[in-house]
Simulated assay, not measured.
Amino acid sequence: MPQKVLIVEDEYLIALDMEAALEDAGFISAGIASTREEVRAKVRQNRPDIALVDLHLADGLTGHLIGEELGKLGARVVFVTANPSLVAQGVPHALGVIEKPADEDSLLDVVRWASEASMHTQTSQLPPRFQRFA
């Protein structure tokens, strides 16, 4: 069954590009959100399996909080940010981070890996450019 991916990004053109690439690769969009409230509404409508979360959003530096909330709900969270050092110590319930700009292939590699994350072990190969949280 295709995985549902929520995109949490306040730059709408970037979010649309991500969504198109994911859908072309066979994933289902769970929507695009740019604030904590929008994320909560999207989750009520369509609980995502995976969430791609930027850190700086329309309501400020809330991405790490959103990521933790989504992780607690069972979503596999990957941060997609130009500032990976802000989450270098990790975020509870999140898988890791990939630095922006992330080309389409790198993004899809990370989402494919996250879609199978429950089967991965510590020795499994991580996607290039992905930094897994301990």
Rank of each mutant, 00 (worst) to 15 (best):
L13H: 10
S106G: 14
H120T: 09
L61D: 14
L65P: 03
E23D: 06
I98K: 05
A75D: 12
V43A: 02
E104F: 03
R36W: 07
G60Q: 11
L95Y: 11
L70W: 15
I50N: 07
S124A: 10
E104T: 10
V110T: 06
A114R: 08
R36F: 13
K72S: 12
P127V: 01
E11G: 02
E99W: 08
S85P: 02
V39E: 00
P101G: 14
A102F: 11
L16H: 02
L95Q: 11
H64Y: 13
E69V: 07
K42N: 06
Q125K: 12
S29N: 08
Q45F: 07
G96I: 00
L16S: 08
W113P: 01
V91R: 02
V77L: 10
A134M: 13
S118R: 00
E104Q: 14
L73S: 00
G71N: 05
A114G: 08
L86V: 01
D49A: 01
A30P: 13
P48I: 01
A15K: 00
E11D: 08
Y12K: 10
Q125V: 02
F27Y: 15
V80F: 00
A21L: 08
G71A: 07
I66G: 00
P127D: 02
N46P: 01
D105R: 09
T123H: 15
A75R: 09
A51F: 15
V43T: 03
G71H: 12
D59I: 09
S124T: 13
N83F: 15
G60I: 14
G90V: 13
A30D: 07
E23Q: 14
L52R: 05
V53I: 09
I98E: 00
A82Q: 08
S106D: 15
